[in-house]
């Protein structure tokens, strides 16, 4: 149906997809908080939240409700505009990344082929890098506007940490891009669907990417910007009510998106072995692919939590040394070797 030279079905389809992806990332982030507490408890031989609802499943709702009804305090000596801007940027940026991730193959509904991806941009990876780097602005602006020395320290830490770890992350990805020859995430998944998962070709690159993903998400062992016991909570020290909730929520959404990205780039995204020899309908395969992709994401979210409750926090100089003196040379070497091998295969 085209009216005023606009394909309205296309518009509706994309709006539905965008809302779906948004709701999905919000719900997953919500239940990640529950999962985090459960995993923490189990690892420490405890039971975890079990009072609100069966298995404590209503706990995220109770937490959210609490945050909504808390008094909102904006410190007198803070910069009001920037103070509100900080968490808004953090939340907005966290929600934006999911646009280019392919959530599944195409499905056919009433004669229309619908791609389960909001936007198949040919520079998908660059888009993600750009948006993720913006995420630190939320933390920096929030920490700066709080007018508190601990918040400021935390935002300085966050900025230098993200700069240090974005470099090896980018270098690890360049090696991957040499292999795939494309920046589109959809094509990367399609290549893995017909070949092998990239983690088999790029094990070192994957490891570097994973470590950097931990650092970018400010997760333990790289949670220096939050560091409850050194900085009283770090950049969100002065925040209360839902603005604090936004910061915490953004962190969990980032974790979800990072897991999705790791699964897409290195573990075949929505593809799974013998996907094409199953002989089911196209729609069934696409939905199953989405389900498998979701399982992969959940696994990586679990890994994020698992590592958090295993490894203690780095000291600041150790963090910098790991980033600059170990990860960057390793990533460079990985890049050179991959480049040489790719050249060798072409001749």
């Amino acid at each position: 149906m085209t009216l005023l030279s606009i394909d309205w079905f296309y518009l509706v389809e994309k709006i539905l997809l965008i809302s779906g992806v948004l709701v999905l990332s919000l719900v997953v982030a919500m239940y990640s908080t529950w999962g985090e507490r459960k995993v923490a408890a189990w690892i420490q031989d405890r039971l975890g939240p079990n009072r609100a609802g069966p298995m404590g499943l209503l706990q995220p709702l109770a937490d959210g409700g609490k945050l909504f009804f808390k008094e909102e305090i904006i410190p007198t000596h803070s910069n009001r505009f920037l103070f509100i801007l900080g968490p808004s940027i953090a939340m907005m940026v966290a929600c934006m990344t999911s646009a280019v991730i392919p959530w599944g193959d195409t499905i056919t509904v009433a004669g229309r082929t619908v791609s389960l991806q909001v936007a198949d941009v040919n520079i998908g990876i660059l888009f993600i890098f750009g948006v993720v780097s913006m995420g630190v602005y939320g933390i920096m602006i929030g920490g700066w506007a709080s007018n508190n020395k601990y918040s400021l320290l935390a935002s300085i830490r966050a900025a230098s940490q993200i700069i240090s770890y974005e470099l090896p992350m980018g270098l690890a990805l360049i090696a991957l891009l040499m292999l795939t020859g494309t920046l589109s995430l959809k094509e990367i998944v399609e290549q893995q669907r017909h070949g092998v998962w990239n983690v088999c070709l790029q094990p070192l690159g994957f490891l570097i990417f994973l470590i950097c993903a931990f650092a970018e998400c400010n997760r333990t062992p790289f949670d220096l910007p939050e560091a409850e016991n050194e900085l009283n909570g770090g950049y969100h020290l002065e925040y209360s009510s839902m603005k604090l909730g936004f910061f915490l929520f953004a962190e969990y959404i980032n974790m979800f998106i990072s897991s999705a990205l790791i699964a897409t780039l290195y573990f075949g995204g929505y593809s799974f072995p013998w996907m094409d020899s199953l002989g089911w309908g196209e729609n069934a395969i696409a939905l199953l692919g989405f389900f498998i992709f979701f399982l992969k994401i959940l696994f990586f979210i679990f890994v994020f939590m698992w590592v958090r409750w295993t490894i203690p926090r780095f000291r600041y100089d150790q963090l910098m040394r790991l980033g600059w003196r170990i990860l960057i040379p390793l990533a460079l070497a990985n890049m050179l070797i991959t480049g040489a091998l790719v050249l060798l295969r072409q001749h």
């Binding site: 995993v39 189990w42 690892i43 420490q44 039971l47 590592v307 295993t310």
Partner: peptide
């Protein structure tokens, strides 16, 4: 060492819990 540690925490994940509800 990190993988050994993660193995230990994974073992605790399935241990009997000490909590008395």
């Amino acid at each position: 060492a990190i993988f050994t540690g993660m193995g230990i925490t994974l073992k605790h994940l399935f241990r009997r819990k000490a909590t008395v509800a």
